[in-house]
């Protein structure tokens, strides 16, 4: 294994973790807003606030980890992506600010439960994946031009690209699906039958669109980036595995059985698909300009970063374990029996 591969694998893994935890967070906000809209708020709010409030800052750090890490391991990405993504990334920042301030002002603070705010918070959960996921489309190439050595983004090509829109739709459907499956499990643990039923329904509704758009993207790629498409087909067995896991989740949720297992299968489904996608993208970070090899940092920095990563992980894993034990696996807390907020 080369240092380049270690670096990109670490980053890809953390991006994957961010996708899962952030999806839960984004989707929950949307369901919360939707239920406020249809006057079912009391069903979901409790579940959502009990789980999300203590952990959203941790969720955010996964994102920070990714963009700091990619600049560290692959500094040239700063040049290509940094120059071109000013507008989309700034929009994503504003949306993140809406979410962060909702936690700060509405759930921790003075309990401002203004409806407009709840809707904004919910909507930002849908818009964020839509703002972040085009980066995946851009990385497929064809949307970035080099003018006098300076990269710039071809917005027109991007916004008229079916590939970009399929990725956006997939990201939204996936967010809602991941979130619904997780929250079904969480509310089932909380012994909240009403919320479980409602969320289970959402999970089943969003399963279809998720798998359809995911398949659609593979076909979009055939026209857009044949090289990537061919690599994807070589890994067909991973996607097949992912699809089986998907069926497993849907089956369990459908049968109202073992929601915990259903969520684990879902993580497996996304894990295999995400890594198959990443592996087939190899070695490009940006078709055709940038590969992980020519953008890689120097060897001494790479080694230093990997050592720091291992040391950091040694600190992180026990702390995360403690956090989850207290807020995810603690029966009394989950059920809302004990409220120890400062």
């Amino acid at each position: 294994m080369t240092l380049e591969i270690i670096g990109i694998s670490v980053l890809w893994l953390f991006l994957f973790l961010y996708v899962i935890v952030a999806s839960i967070d984004f989707g929950a906000g949307f369901f919360n807003a939707y239920s406020a809209f249809s006057d079912k708020q009391h069903i979901l709010t409790g579940v959502i606030q009990r789980y999300l409030s203590p952990v959203w800052e941790v969720t955010n750090v996964f994102f920070v980890f990714f963009f700091v890490g990619i600049i560290g391991f692959f500094p040239q990405t700063a040049f290509y992506y940094g120059t071109t993504l000013l507008v989309p990334a700034s929009i994503a920042l504003i949306l993140l600010a809406i979410r962060g301030s909702y936690y700060a002002f509405a759930t921790y603070g003075a309990k401002i439960n203004h409806r407009g705010y709840i809707y904004m918070y919910g909507l930002s959960g849908l818009l964020l994946p839509a703002a972040l996921s085009p980066v995946l489309a851009i990385s497929e190439g064809g949307f970035m031009r080099l003018e006098g050595g300076q990269p710039s983004l071809d917005y027109w090509a991007l916004f008229t690209s079916p590939l970009m829109w399929s990725i956006v739709v997939l990201s939204i459907a996936a967010v809602l699906y991941i979130s619904a499956v997780f929250l079904t499990w969480y509310s089932w643990k909380a012994g909240d039958d009403k919320a479980t039923d409602l969320l289970r329904k959402y999970a089943l509704i969003w399963a279809g669109p998720t798998i359809i758009t995911a398949t659609g993207i593979i076909f979009e790629l055939r026209g857009h980036n044949p090289e990537h498409y061919a690599n994807l087909l070589d890994l067909w067995w991973m996607f097949a595995l992912s699809f089986l896991l998907f069926l497993g989740t849907v089956y369990l949720v459908w049968k109202r059985r073992n929601y915990g297992m259903a969520f684990i299968l879902l993580v497996g489904q996304f894990f295999t698909a995400f890594f198959a996608y990443g592996a087939s993208h190899y070695p490009y970070l940006l078709y055709p300009h940038l590969t992980i090899y020519d953008s890689f940092t120097n060897e001494s920095m790479a080694i230093a970063l990997i050592i720091a990563f291992i040391a950091g992980l040694g600190l992180l894993l026990p702390s995360l374990y403690l956090l989850f034990r207290l807020f995810l696996f603690d029966k009394d807390y989950v059920k809302g029996k004990s409220d120890y907020h400062a």
Partner: peptide, 15 residues
């Protein structure tokens, strides 16, 4: 990049 990267772990820890 090293201290920037280490900072992220400090954030994790604090959060």
């Amino acid at each position: 990049a090293l201290p920037l990267f280490m900072e992220v772990f400090a954030f994790f820890f604090e959060a």
